[in-house]
Design a protein around this nucleic acid. Structure first.
Lengths: 333, 333
DNA sequence: TTGTACGCGTTATCAT
DNA sequence: ATGATAACGCGTACAA
């Protein structure tokens, strides 16, 4: 437990018999004679010196940290996204800071205000609900933000979004091709970003294919627990659907559970499609056909956009749309 | 996109007509007259001032950040743990930095060296494999570390561990009570911290209960994909077990999948028990009986230990053992 | 090529 | 109670 102090530029300079400026230059790959370079390098190695992050941040005006704000650290799709971002940043000088804001929009705004403190150079924001106050806070922000998820027009910020309509369309085409006609939709809350997009995607997709929705239900949340009663509601009344499209994988797995309790077989009696293609889809039994709305790619692109902007702040605001794809598994075969 | 600069103490001081020292005092709740306090507070509000994190960190010698290093951001049990830590830290002045080190022990050591840079005040480390080099790096570290998971004796560091033996015992007692006698064990790699602990827990537990293990198999990894062939191996030869204890939930779910493919019914033909009690256990179909080895509590305790130590570095190294519990669900009923 | 010296924005010490 | 000022450790403009 020896509390030896960190070594500083001065210590290295003394040891190498040069000035701190020379040490700094060597470390930052600025011109220096081979002689000094060598002396400095060995002094650095002997002392185990590493520049102090705060001092460096203060001097260069950048923290070399990127913050990511997600609604729920527990949701598998956010987990995928964090993993992806963390991988992209691994190749850069940036470190990743995690801010779990919960569902609370106030907490997200709070976070935005706090970024003024300079502990991050940029933010990847994945809001569940987009309020006027949030977009206002985004516009007001001094530092670069990339928002993952749809935004109202006119918010001048880098943005990466999914194409839910096309994604739902992939699911519908697949279901129709495999002979399903009475297709129900189990959504999450419609006042959320994904809830709104997936709802309108479903409605438009059904209309385009001249199908009549068997039923549309809305779970209170994008969770397994909330999915159970909502799935039961889908089955409670009217003609039984022969397929149920669910707004995420957790809802789909809840649906499969409820179908099982009703003695219905998947996919023979009812086909089930999830969205997000999270780990749960592969792991489910039967394995779950799922629309991959590009969560991994969206987060990867978001991280790249942010790193680019930090290198060149003059870039105009960009918008990227990531194409969906469908992974067909046992639940619809 | 107005690039207005951050406001500083000086700006606030000018606006309030006082010195920067007074502003600092007001902000840090040091004695100041009501008059100055008021002037400063309103200036702060008008300018939207917030102290610069790096400057503060440089001056006070602390970053107010805590790093967490996990082997795989994707594993649901680590996700649980991050969520828990992030919640504990939410009530403190500390922010959370995420370092996904992968399985690579070298990367973890790298991380430890890099903490010298002062971008974190403490570390929560959850190593999958503990090598001599890792424990050496831990002992060498200048800043406080809390390790989650078992460690060799003599590493003088705060440590929170599970009680795998007791946990496995809970599962065995439950299986025996419900009439199972031919109990197999599907482990992950035995050269990992959890793999070693769970193996010896199983062997000791079986012996104590005078049971003969039906079979012990070892998956190449704690993942669903690695679980599939390993579960098949358990069923391939010898008398069929009537219960399979799995070293985590992902392996258990893989086992259930394979059992289904063999036309075996759960729990009638074979009972299945998982470990970690992750979200997947509730969500599985049939829902999975799982040994909760206290992942949530371990991470909560770890975060609290670290915060305590940062408040009082003179504390002796502490060791906490978190008690397991069993959640009985459909897979063994 | 190298060294000296300043400033980044805070907090804390010391006078007043 | 308040203000001037010194440090924290680094990067760099400037001088040599």
């Amino acid at each position: 437990l020896a509390l030896e102090r960190r070594s500083t530029l001065h210590a290295v300079a003394d040891r190498a018999g040069v000035s701190i400026a020379s040490v700094s230059r060597v470390l930052n790959d600025l011109p220096a004679s081979p002689e000094t370079t060598a002396r400095v390098r060995s002094a650095v190695a002997e002392l185990g010196y590493a520049p102090h992050a705060a001092a460096r941040a203060l001097r260069v005006g950048a923290s070399e940290q990127i913050a990511i704000a997600v609604a729920d650290v527990g949701n598998p799709v956010y987990v995928q996204m964090m993993r992806e971002v963390s991988e992209v940043l691994g190749d850069t000088r940036f470190r990743l800071m995690l801010s779990s804001t919960g569902n609370d929009p106030a907490a997200q705004i709070d976070l935005l205000e706090n970024l003024n403190r300079g502990y991050a150079d940029g933010l990847i924001l994945i809001p569940l609900r987009v309020t006027g106050e949030l977009t206002a806070a985004i516009s007001r922000s001094r530092l670069p933000i990339v928002v993952i998820g749809s935004l109202p027009d006119g918010v001048d910020v880098d943005n990466v979004r999914a194409d839910s309509a096309t994604g739902v369309g992939l699911a519908l085409d697949h279901l129709v091709e495999t002979g399903r006609t009475r297709i129900a939709f189990l959504n999450g809350p419609r006042d959320t970003v994904p809830g709104a997009a997936r709802h309108s995607g479903f409605v438009a997709g059904m209309k385009k294919r001249k199908l009549l929705p068997a039923r549309i239900a809305e779970a209170a949340d994008f969770t397994f627990d909330a999915g159970l009663p909502a799935a039961a509601a889908v089955l409670a009344t009217g003609e039984r659907p022969d397929a149920i499209v669910c707004a995420n994988d957790l809802l789909a797995i809840a649906t499969m559970k409820v179908l099982g309790e009703h003695g219905l077989s998947i996919p023979v009696d009812v086909a089930v499609v999830g969205m997000d293609d999270s780990d749960m889809a592969m792991v489910a039994n039967p394995s779950l056909t799922s629309v991959d709305l590009g969560a991994r790619e969206r987060s990867r692109v978001a991280a790249e956009l942010l790193v680019e902007r930090l290198a060149d702040p003059s870039l105009p605001a960009r918008r990227r749309v990531v194409a969906p794809s469908l992974f067909v598994r046992e639940s619809t075969r």
